[in-house]
């Protein structure tokens, strides 16, 4: 922890990830946050241009984007940008997101256990198994959306079998993403107060870090395990 002379303002330079800064833990560097929000921006642009084509129930989204014709033209391009941003995100984060032995079972019993919010495993590192799963899911789903989306984009250049498969797979991939993004947003905001600042200002409180990511907290602060 850096000591500052009494009264001197702390430096406003971008703090290093995984350090203590102004009494808080730095969880995401500016680069991480910019990448995350770039992915999010293009995700929502793709969502708002795609959903009115998916179902007329969401035609109001199409109106927001300037009409269904605009959606048909814009959707593939913002989707390409989404894919590129996702790949950048992958290169930036994949090392942190390696699944370890401790993350096993997250897609199942551990997820149910976690959602009970009854207690927290003190040995969770910077990312828990669920976060890692979401990361890899988002990558694989983005690839699936891209491949099927290219077929739909230039649908008149592909054979009937490929077009039919792409219609179904593009839908399935989107529905999975739709469900996953609801969980992602809920857990990042209302469900776990203090989490959102990790992606806005980049910092989290010590108490938050101790609760949600005990191992990471100890690594960053050098504190011993309690009890």
């Amino acid at each position: 922890m850096t000591d500052f002379a009494a009264g001197a303002a702390p430096p406003r330079t971008a703090p290093q990830e995984n350090t203590v800064w102004n009494g808080k833990l730095v969880r995401h560097s500016a680069a991480s946050r910019v990448i995350h929000w770039t992915v999010a921006l293009f995700f929502f642009l793709a969502l708002f241009t795609g959903m009115p084509i998916w179902s007329p129930i969401f035609s109001w989204m199409g109106n927001l984007m300037g009409g269904l014709h605009v959606c048909r033209w814009l959707h593939p391009w913002v989707a390409c940008a989404f894919f590129v941003a996702t790949i950048v995100m992958w290169t930036h984060w994949h090392a942190d997101m390696k699944m370890t032995e401790a993350d096993r079972g997250w897609f199942g019993p551990k997820l149910i256990e976690y959602l009970k919010f009854s207690g927290e495993d003190p040995n969770v590192g910077k990312y828990n198994g669920g976060q890692k799963l979401f990361f890899w899911f988002a990558l694989l789903d983005a690839i699936l959306l891209l491949l099927t989306g290219i077929v739909l984009w230039f649908s008149t250049s592909f054979g009937a079998g490929l077009r039919e498969a792409s219609i179904l797979l593009h839908d399935v991939a989107f529905i999975l993403f739709g469900v996953a993004i609801v969980a992602h947003i809920y857990l990042g905001t209302a469900a776990e107060p203090g989490t959102f600042t990790a992606m806005s200002r980049g910092t989290v409180s010590k108490a938050w870090a101790r609760l949600h990511h005990g191992k990471w907290y100890r690594e960053v602060t050098g504190e011993e395990k309690r009890r």
């Binding site: 776990e192 910092t203 409180s205 108490a207 949600h212």
Partner: peptide
């Protein structure tokens, strides 16, 4: 279930 908040006296920002 409700939100999961740190139980410490220190409130998250």
């Amino acid at each position: 279930v409700g939100p999961k908040e740190p139980k410490d006296q220190e409130r998250p920002s």
